[in-house]
Design a protein around this nucleic acid. Structure first.
Length: 252
DNA sequence: TAGGCCATCTGGTCCT
DNA sequence: AGGACCAGATGGCCTA
């Protein structure tokens, strides 16, 4: 069933492929090179080539067969290009994900990339909400905070306290990334200075060794890192509990 | 060797 | 009609 030149497998988006934005960069793929060197961009000049199509057509003239073949090649080429664009976008997404990059680290799979991205967006939006809440507390109810501060030990502005329970989603995130909210709160209010990043604010510095079991085997395909949100299924926060998920819904 | 992941081909559907 | 998008099928590569 394998048709034309594509029968020899290739991995155009494999780690050794450097993706940049220059035109045609993804043609570094071996198959693509041969394919496009032979008759580069068959969609531009649809020239007949590539003897294949061994199966005999039924009642079709040679010209008709060639036309169909050319059409098929054109469609294939477009589809290939479309998928390469998709892969480029996926690589771009991988680049901005808080995930350990490097030659020794296996590249995130597509599904892992999407799950991690979703997780990351949820985490950021949650932490943004928390920040907004805290800022509102600081600048809106400073008097109350001051009185509280006077009677207790000094608290950091960014530290969630028992008076400000975490967002349910944040709680789930906290528990998933390696610590209970209470432990996190204690951590923040006692030993750690004001965190510098939202990731650390959400406790992603916590160890995640306890999360390495993954029923969907996602964990087996990449490594978990302390300080990194994890794309495996176990690390997924509560689904559909926030409005942020509405934008993620697949409408079709 | 089985399973995961991937690229590609292909036919169908929808849209412009 | 042509192009974009999608999903199923197929086969290759890689890893546990």
């Amino acid at each position: 069933m394998d048709s034309d030149a594509g029968s020899t497998s290739s991995r155009s988006s494999s780690p050794d492929l450097v993706v940049d934005d220059s035109a045609g960069s993804f043609f570094s793929n071996k198959m693509f090179q041969t394919y496009y060197q032979e008759g580069r961009a068959d969609d531009e000049a649809s020239e007949g080539r590539m003897e294949r199509c061994g199966g005999g057509g039924k009642i079709m003239s040679e010209d008709g067969k060639e036309v169909v073949q050319d059409l098929r090649l054109k469609v294939n080429s477009r589809e290939r290009r479309r998928m390469h664009d998709l892969n480029q976008a996926m690589d771009g997404l991988r680049e901005v994900m808080p995930y350990a990059h490097g030659p020794s680290v296996r590249k995130l799979s597509k599904i892992s990339t999407l799950l991690l991205a979703r997780n990351y967006i949820l985490m950021l939006s949650t932490s943004l909400d928390e920040m907004k809440k805290l800022v509102g507390d600081v600048y809106g109810g400073s008097a109350a905070i001051q009185s509280r501060t006077a009677s207790h030990h000094a608290i950091t502005p960014a530290a969630p306290t028992a008076h400000h329970p975490l967002h349910p989603l944040a709680q789930s995130l906290h528990s998933l990334v390696g610590g209970t909210p209470s432990a996190l709160q204690h951590h923040h209010s006692s030993s750690v200075p004001v965190p510098h990043s939202t990731a650390s604010f959400l406790g992603f510095h916590a160890p995640v060794q306890g999360l390495l079991k993954d029923p969907l085997h996602l964990a087996s395909s990449y490594r978990h890192f302390p300080g990194m949100p994890c794309p495996c299924s176990l690390c997924q926060p509560l689904p559909t509990t926030t409005s942020t998920l509405h934008s993620l819904s697949m409408n079709k």
